[in-house]
């Protein structure tokens, strides 16, 4: 499993889908019905870097690269701790 290819693919799917939903929501908001679609698009866009890191981690685990998989796991833990701390 190529880590760069799988990470790029995950980033591409999430960011393109996020942008498509965001633009659709923006167009629908003219009629006053686009709020949920717009929120979903922005949400998907915002979490796309995290999706990229999660896919990188998975790819590194599957390819047996334990050192770098460990680094990715630490980053995921630090990121989640930061988000939880700021929401509390």
């Amino acid at each position: 499993m190529n880590t760069n290819r799988s990470t790029a693919m995950a980033l591409r799917i999430s960011v393109v889908l996020g942008i498509v939903l965001t633009v659709a929501g923006l167009i629908l908001s003219v009629t006053g019905n686009g709020d949920r679609v717009l929120y979903s698009g922005i949400f998907l866009l915002v979490i796309s870097p995290l999706i990229g890191v999660l896919v990188t981690f998975l790819s590194l685990v599957l390819s047996g690269d334990r050192f770098w998989a460990g680094i990715a796991a630490v980053l995921i833990a630090v990121t989640f701790s930061g988000v939880v701390a700021s929401l509390l």
């Binding site: 698009g41 922005i42 866009l45 870097p49 990229g52 890191v53 990121t79 988000v83 700021s86 929401l87």
Partner: peptide
């Protein structure tokens, strides 16, 4: 990745002006 933490906090607490964010993001 750095911006994710701040953005998700703002989004979940309803502090993002969605239409402005959509225009800038596109």
């Amino acid at each position: 990745i750095t911006a994710f933490s701040g953005a998700i906090t703002y989004l979940l607490s309803g502090q993002i002006l969605l239409e402005y964010a959509a225009g800038i993001a596109a």
